[in-house]
Computed example of a mutant assay.
Amino acid sequence: MDKLSIVVPCFNEEESIPLFYSAVNKVLEKILNLEAEYWFVNDGSKDSSLAKMKELREKDKHVHYISFSRNFGKEAALYAGLQNATGNYVVVMDVDLQDPPKFLPKMYDLIKSGQYDSVGCRRVDRKGENKFKSFLSDKFYAVINKISKTQIVPGARDYRMMTRQMVNAVLSMKEYSRFSKGIFSWVGFKTKYLEYHNIERVAGETDWTTWKLFKYAMNGIADFSQAPLNLAVWIGLFSFALSLLGILFIIIRKIVSPASSVFGWASLVAVILLIGGLQLLCIGIIGRYVGKIYLQVKNRPVYIVKEKE
């Protein structure tokens, strides 16, 4: 009998957890010869999320939970769930039911056929979401797919079912700064995507603010592209060439018209600020990559577990 592990990261989701468990169980009942286990990961929630997980554990011994010592972020929660999952198939899902459980039977049939190593889901629209956030999301996919060799399907969710072989490949990547969408693509394997229209949360409010999404996108770009570093090089070269042209212009101007007036302080200060700004930008880009190296070489754990059952 096949075993399916369901990995569910949770942060302040006390309302959604029972609804998610009930909805997924109803769908799994339709799949014959499949044993399922749940791995709820409590990512430092401040509400009663852990208590809800423990209640489910009392009712169903197929339910397991991992509780972090503090909030480490969704990527750490995904990593912890994948490390503890024991099934020969593993699916990652959001607890807010924006990942439709109705796709589970189709995902299982497709992956069981042997044609695919992974079956994921992608949203074809963001109806009901903030338009500005949707705009930034679309632009993120456009930018990262242009500057990175690792291509990410626009609208792709973390929601996907994977074979044990693919899960092991994902776990073999030990980086501290994790960007799962990029990792899932980087490891390769044949993936099929199911399309669906956006679904609103079943309960509660999202913790993903526009600023958090922006930082997450910047991490993704830095993790899977060296384009920002290349940009810093080109900015430096452009600035250097511009300076040479400026010096050449001053020399020629002095030779052709010795009596001409000199430039004022305003223009001089403007040029200094321009060059200084470009230098700070380049240093900032390089500093971001150096910071990631610093975090990696410290070799700190991605997460710390306080409770587990």
Rank of each mutant, 00 (worst) to 15 (best):
163 T>E: 03
163 T>L: 05
163 T>F: 07
163 T>D: 01
163 T>G: 03
164 R>V: 00
166 M>H: 14
166 M>G: 10
171 L>I: 06
171 L>E: 05
171 L>G: 01
172 S>W: 02
173 M>G: 14
173 M>F: 15
173 M>W: 14
175 E>R: 06
176 Y>R: 11
178 R>A: 08
179 F>D: 09
179 F>I: 14
179 F>V: 11
180 S>Y: 12
180 S>M: 14
180 S>E: 13
180 S>N: 13
181 K>F: 04
181 K>P: 01
182 G>C: 04
182 G>L: 02
184 F>G: 03
184 F>P: 08
185 S>E: 09
185 S>I: 12
185 S>C: 05
186 W>F: 08
187 V>C: 10
187 V>Q: 07
188 G>S: 03
188 G>R: 04
188 G>P: 01
190 K>R: 14
190 K>G: 12
190 K>V: 11
191 T>A: 10
191 T>W: 10
191 T>D: 08
193 Y>L: 15
193 Y>Q: 15
195 E>H: 15
195 E>G: 10
195 E>C: 15
195 E>L: 15
196 Y>A: 08
196 Y>M: 04
197 H>D: 15
200 E>R: 13
200 E>H: 13
201 R>H: 14
202 V>W: 04
202 V>T: 01
202 V>L: 04
203 A>P: 02
203 A>W: 03
203 A>D: 05
204 G>S: 00
204 G>F: 02
205 E>L: 00
207 D>V: 11
207 D>R: 11
208 W>K: 08
209 T>K: 06
211 W>D: 09
211 W>Q: 12
211 W>F: 11
212 K>Q: 01
213 L>G: 07
213 L>F: 10
213 L>I: 06
214 F>P: 00
215 K>S: 10
216 Y>L: 12
217 A>E: 00
219 N>H: 11
220 G>Y: 03
221 I>H: 02
221 I>W: 05
222 A>G: 02
223 D>H: 01
223 D>N: 09
223 D>R: 02
224 F>I: 01
224 F>N: 00
224 F>V: 00
224 F>K: 01
225 S>C: 05
225 S>N: 03
225 S>I: 08
225 S>A: 00
226 Q>W: 03
226 Q>L: 05
227 A>V: 06
228 P>Q: 00
229 L>R: 00
229 L>F: 01
230 N>H: 09
230 N>F: 10
230 N>A: 09
232 A>N: 07
232 A>T: 05
233 V>Y: 02
233 V>N: 02
236 G>A: 00
237 L>Y: 02
237 L>M: 09
239 S>T: 12
241 A>D: 00
241 A>L: 10
242 L>E: 06
244 L>R: 09
244 L>V: 09
244 L>D: 07
245 L>C: 08
245 L>R: 08
247 I>V: 07
247 I>L: 03
248 L>F: 14
249 F>H: 11
251 I>Q: 02
252 I>G: 13
252 I>R: 14
252 I>V: 15
253 R>N: 15
254 K>A: 13
255 I>V: 15
256 V>K: 04
256 V>F: 11
257 S>M: 12
258 P>A: 09
258 P>V: 08
259 A>F: 13
259 A>G: 13
260 S>Q: 11
261 S>R: 12
262 V>I: 15
262 V>N: 15
263 F>I: 11
264 G>S: 12
267 S>G: 07
268 L>D: 04
268 L>F: 12
